[in-house]
């Protein structure tokens, strides 16, 4: 797929869409902070927020629920959704393929392997998250090293193939650990982790991934014009004065940092990184300048909406990895049927 400016005008002026999406996401976040298993009324919430802003916490359970449980979870949903969708938008341009998700180089599978190993060794949560983060980074590093060693004429193709192979290897190691795991204790934990969830998010989780996401995001924003050029192909990029190889390693590094850090706290959540960039492209066109913020906003809002459903629709938590596809698939089909804005 070559990415050019959309022939048809986007539905709304692009920055207008970003603006309305921002407002919609903020409204959704406010709504999400008011619903949940623990009853907190609007008045109570207002009192707690003003008390918190004034630095006078009242120590009630409602306050703990709102400030220590719900808000971190909402923040995490926004961050995870934004990071995954942003990474997806980058990768789809980088690999010039609409079927690419952030996991194409094995970051989620690698993170999954790290987390499963942590659960298998009965480590505390913080180490499980650390293992996941390192597993994601290490897997992509291995993939990149293999691709660099092969030095084919098609660097992107070799990269993707190496990602598929290493990802499959990591997947089979996960299966091996599942077979060896304690079926009463570790196996359910592994299953839940691989399905993704934000149910055990703590404020500390948000604070620990925020720097990693920012560290990944800054280079992407600074290099946004070059990433556009990269999506034209290596030869075209070179004629425009962009060194594809070097740029690619920076972009992959930044994206991997973002994805690995969020997957470490949320578990594997599919779909968001694959589909949100498409929807964003339908709305604002393929220019990366606008596509990145639009994708991130859409991803953030989408995951927040789905996670709010996951924690309110029934007495028990619904795993996010299941729900993202269930909610997103019909929506995506509907958008697809409406027209192919900004695809070609």
């Amino acid at each position: 797929m070559s990415v050019r400016e959309a022939p048809g005008a986007p539905l709304l002026p692009a920055w207008g869409i970003v603006g309305t999406r921002t407002v919609a996401t903020i409204l959704l976040a406010i709504f999400a902070s008011l619903v949940g298993a623990y009853p907190v009324t609007l008045g109570e919430a207002a009192r707690i927020f003003t008390g918190w802003l004034a630095g006078r916490p009242d120590g009630s359970t409602a306050e703990t629920v709102l400030l220590e449980v719900r808000l971190p979870r909402i923040a995490a949903a926004l961050l995870v959704g934004a990071a995954l969708a942003g990474s997806g938008a980058v990768y789809q341009g980088l690999f010039r393929n609409p079927l690419v998700s952030p996991d194409i180089l094995g970051v989620s599978t690698g993170a999954g392997l790290g987390a499963v190993l942590g659960i298998f060794l009965s480590l505390p949560i913080i180490l499980i998250q650390g293992f996941a983060f390192i597993g994601g980074l290490a897997t992509v590093a291995v993939v990149y090293a293999i691709a660099a060693a092969v030095r084919g004429r098609e660097p992107v193709l070799v990269l993707v193939l190496a990602g598929v192979v290493v990802g499959a290897l990591a997947g089979s190691m996960i299966s091996l650990l599942k077979v060896l795991a304690d079926p009463y204790d570790q196996l359910p934990a592994i299953t839940f982790w691989l399905l993704g969830s934000l149910s055990s998010i703590r404020p500390a989780d948000v604070w620990s991934v925020l720097p990693a996401i920012l560290a990944g995001l800054v280079p992407l924003v600074l290099l946004r014009w070059r990433i556009n050029v990269l999506s034209l192909g290596d030869d075209e990029a070179r004629t425009l004065g962009v060194e594809a190889g070097k740029l690619r390693i920076i972009v992959i590094g930044a994206t991997t940092l973002m994805t690995a850090s969020v997957v470490a706290i949320s578990g594997v959540i599919g779909w968001v990184g694959l589909v949100m960039p498409h929807i964003a492209r339908m709305l604002v066109g393929p220019n990366f300048d606008r596509l990145l913020p639009a994708s991130m906003l859409l991803g953030a809002g989408y995951l927040l909406g789905v996670d709010t459903l996951a924690r309110t629709m029934s007495q028990v938590e619904t795993p996010l990895g299941i729900l993202t596809a269930f909610v997103g698939a019909p929506f995506f089909l509907w958008l697809l049927a409406r027209g192919r804005h900004g695809w070609e």
């Binding site: 949940g36 298993a37 623990y38 009853p39 359970t61 703990t64 629920v65 220590e68 449980v69 719900r70 979870r73 359910p188 839940f192 969830s197 149910s199 055990s200 924690r311 007495q315 028990v316 938590e317 795993p319």
Partner: peptide, 14 residues
């Protein structure tokens, strides 16, 4: 069977 709970549900159930 075995399910995931959230901290909020535990606090609500108390």
């Amino acid at each position: 069977g075995i399910v995931q709970a959230s901290m909020e549900q535990v606090l609500a159930a108390n």
